[in-house]
Design a protein around this nucleic acid. Structure first.
Lengths: 355, 355
DNA sequence: CCGACGTACTGTATCGATATAGAAGGACTG
DNA sequence: CAGTCCTTCTATATCGATACAGTACGTCGG
């Protein structure tokens, strides 16, 4: 019923190819005929080549798939993720490519349907639970991939733009240890899934979520090297990477007799929540309790948060460029970016008597 | 080269249709054959039906196009837009539909290419410069549309989920007038385009951007009704809906002899910037200068901002539902949602002597 | 005047799937 | 045993475009 190339062709008595050329290769026909064709299209309500058909024929859709977790509020709410997405979007739109946001449902089957139905030229994986079964399907689809977390999750062919998570976390741990803290809690998201916020007894070498695993291991590296027995470190799960979860998690470290003198977190967002919890209890950050974040989001500086600064917009932009203009040199498709330790006011020397 | 349905069919000596059915209509073949097919697919590296081909044949792509302005940082940065997107994403993902984020370049031709190449089932227009030429193309494409701003921009067939912008703004204006303010500035974004932040001399009845136009007219309605001569109101353009632009715009109202005693803004984000500017000058919000926002984003409450509360997540969700499950009753496809005036601490009685 | 070349257009195969009608064979019914 | 129905699979047309080879015709150099 709606007009197609053929409709226009019939109307003017020219071939379908010519009408197609009028849109896609204007140099292939006379300007005069071209304008007659466009006029006829206008008249018949034809709005140009069907994007799906064109994509099928050309084998290209001009879209990058971005996987988001079930809880997509995070992608839009977490300042770090937002910055990353912005960089990605910039790189994409510079190449007239769009972003297809895929919400990956928890349910395995549904997840495979979503991924399987996604018409994209490439996938960008970031902040995705790396154990999800739908990831196998992505692998199988054989389209280019860039990942931001576990560099080995998709083999050497996948692009990678990330940081050395473990070494970065280690620097925070060393900073805290050097300040003399021995009573330490770690607030980390997705240590276990299931949505519980609270202390957990987990083996750092067996965490499923790569980023948290590496960061917790980095903390441990530093603390153990500084002589803090690992079994005295309180490990607290945050159900999500959200400010209020950070506050709820912190309560478990603060409301007990052997209160922690330092709380290491796996993200600035969680750390801000921890600071909220301190404030609610009249505790002074950096004096009574030291707190560290991770990412150095915009809000970190006004909050005086000690943290690890890592590129955000840049990281997204690089991911997009690797997908859309893959560098010849394979080494340039796998980037480990530098980070830096930013010391601010939320960390200070341990003032509590050592046990 | 990559495997297709036909590859699998040939391998097993069955018809292509049967292989297709194995994926899309499992009840159409024996479980035994189906598992042989899936096994063969696995073996040959076939990852399921090509999404583009499927979309072409089915005439459905399971995606909603979301237009974003050139400056897409806004979509990801403006808290109100983020909340709206989240609602939209929730509605979409509940129906296994994805969001295709389209970045609309300023350039007319490029914009038409982006829109024309977008494989989507529907469009959701929000925060889009409504004069952009690519919008005609969207109209012409004949897919369902939901808009969030000018209810008349796309005719009566388009869905609409919005608020009565003008009446809402009027309530803010009345509030300010009732407090006795007479020296008033308005900080509004996109009064004129071109990226200048500063006072402008513009006719409220001739603004191109619908939302700003309505809100400014609403302010005028209230002020004029209260006896404030319109030509004494200072109209200041903000180049973008961003916090720092709000601060920069406010400077023009504060750093002059006849300093405004009240500043009305078109968004909370701008208002927060205005508050920053007050703070930088040692002026007390609600005492020295009253400030109002619009939207009631999360940050408004802690800032004590007087504002208009409008639904955000809900508004996005409703838009998604109208697109994906259009109500039979046309009236339910055009929703004007209620708003409320939230009075907080940033507004107070005018303490300055009247001129 | 012939061959080479350029311009403007056409015809056909193809991209990879799904819908629909229909065929083959077995089971069940009366 | 004929007729009906169900299950299981097949054949063909189709979705709407683009790539590529090819045709027709005019021009130009020698």
């Amino acid at each position: 019923m709606p007009a197609t190339l053929q409709t226009i062709a019939d109307e003017l008595g020219v071939s379908r190819s010519t009408v197609s050329n009028a849109y896609s290769r204007p140099d292939q026909l006379s300007p005069e005929l071209r304008s007659r064709i466009l006029a006829a299209a206008e008249r018949l309500g034809y709005s140009g080549p069907n994007p799906t058909a064109r994509s099928l024929r050309r084998g290209k859709v001009n879209a990058i798939g971005v996987l988001l977790t079930d809880n997509l509020s995070m992608a839009f709410t977490d300042p770090y993720a937002v910055a990353y997405l912005r960089g990605l979007a910039e790189a994409a739109s510079a190449r007239e490519t769009s972003l297809l946001l895929l919400n990956l449902p928890k349910d395995e089957e549904a997840g495979r349907r979503v991924v399987g139905n996604a018409a994209v030229d490439a996938f960008c994986l970031y902040c995705v639970p790396d154990w999800h079964g739908a990831l196998d399907l992505i692998r199988a689809r054989g389209v280019p991939i860039v990942i931001g977390e576990d560099p080995d999750a998709f083999g050497p062919d996948a692009g990678y733009v990330g940081i050395d998570e473990r070494a970065a976390a280690r620097r925070l741990g060393e900073h805290i240890a050097r300040l003399g803290h021995r009573q330490i809690a770690i607030v980390a998201h997705w240590i276990v899934d299931g949505g519980v916020t609270g202390p957990v007894d987990a083996d750092p070498d067996a965490l499923r979520y790569y980023v948290t695993g590496q960061r917790v291991r980095g903390f441990r590296d530093a603390l153990v090297a500084a002589g803090v027995p690992w079994d005295r470190v309180l490990l607290i799960n945050a159900a999500d990477n959200a400010r209020d979860e950070g506050g709820a998690a912190a309560a478990h470290a603060l409301d007990r007799l052997d209160r922690a003198t330092a709380i290491l977190t796996t993200s600035d967002v969680l750390a801000l929540g921890v600071l909220d919890a301190l404030g609610a209890r009249g505790l002074r950050p950096g004096r009574d309790v030291s707190v560290t974040g991770f990412d150095d989001i915009d809000e970190a500086e006004p909050a005086g948060l000690t943290t690890i600064r890592q590129p955000s917009v840049e990281r997204g932009r690089l991911a997009g460029e690797i997908l859309l203009d893959p560098p010849e040199d394979p080494a340039r498709r796998r980037l480990t970016l530098p980070v830096s330790l930013v010391v601010r006011a939320t960390t200070g020397p341990n003032t509590k008597e050592l046990a």
